[in-house]
């Protein structure tokens, strides 16, 4: 089965374009299945179901959604195989922009939209930087020049990804996206594969549902930030080295 991971901020059009592209693949004879990882609730199952695509939604609830994703991936893969799918798409929520669900050796897709501000490609981090395909949606709402400058910013953050403009409302570009999905490598299992980017370390008192604020309630893996005196603007701190892939 081919496996594709899809990540992107909330409401950027992930579900729309994946449902359309999977529909095209299915019509061309490649059965698909989608697993949606989300936090508290999700209505996306209905969107996939109405496109005729088998879908399973997994909600992380009280757990870190990225850790939840990693610990349920084998089961998700097995479920998708059980549907008879030849192509499985794992859609994850945008979450905190800190993480990336992408897996080495499999197809990794990032979706962002044209309305997010010129610095968005930089802010989004590893889910864009480590993607093989970047889909840009809502391009119909901005000018040609803005699309091109935005594309350039994406290129600066990710020098090798294929960048595609896709319209989730009209479906323009989804046929090409379906062709890209069909290029995903085929794998027998996800076991023993590695993530492209480490998940955040956790295990502090707040992981265990602590709600009170204050130093005396902070136990476990706690990190304190540096706050600068006065008006001087410090150089932006680089991201944690210990998270690098």
């Amino acid at each position: 089965m081919r496996l594709v991971t899809v990540a992107g901020p909330p409401s950027c059009g992930k579900t729309s374009i994946i449902a359309r592209a999977c529909r095209q693949l299915q019509d061309a004879g490649t059965p698909c299945a989608v697993v949606k990882f989300d936090c508290l609730k999700s209505r996306d199952a209905a969107a996939y179901a109405s496109a005729g695509i088998p879908v399973s939604v997994a909600l992380s609830g009280g757990l870190c959604p990225d850790h939840f994703y990693a610990t349920n991936l084998e089961e998700a893969f097995t479920w998708a195989q059980g549907t008879g799918a030849a192509c499985c798409v794992i859609e994850t929520a945008g979450l905190c922009n800190r993480c990336s669900p992408h897996i080495r050796g499999l197809l990794a897709l990032c979706v962002i939209d044209n309305l997010m501000g010129i610095d968005a490609p930089e802010k989004i981090g590893p889910m864009l930087r480590l993607a093989d395909v970047v889909c840009v949606t809502k391009g119909d709402l901005v000018s040609q020049a803005e699309r091109e400058v935005y594309r350039h910013r994406i290129r600066q953050m990710n020098s090798r990804a294929v960048i595609r403009h896709i319209n989730g409302l009209t479906g323009q570009g989804c046929q090409d996206l379906a062709r890209l999905l069909a290029l995903a490598p085929e794998v027998d299992s996800v076991t023993e594969r590695t993530l492209r980017f480490a998940m955040p370390a956790a295990v502090c008192s707040y992981c265990l549902s602590e709600m009170r604020l204050g130093a005396r309630y902070q136990k476990g893996n706690v990190k304190k930030a540096m706050f600068v005196q006065g008006l001087a603007t410090p150089a932006a701190p680089e991201e944690d080295d210990d998270a690098a892939s």
């Binding site: 501000g117 010129i118 000018s143 803005e146 935005y150």
Partner: peptide
């Protein structure tokens, strides 16, 4: 794909938060 066609649509507004000359310079650099 995505490079053949430039479009001037009926869209009348910019949405990016940049100054005019900075934006044009960024476009020229791209």
């Amino acid at each position: 794909q995505g490079r053949l066609v430039a479009q001037i649509t009926q869209n009348m507004n910019f949405v990016l938060d940049m100054g005019v000359l900075d934006f044009l310079t960024a476009h020229a650099e791209s």
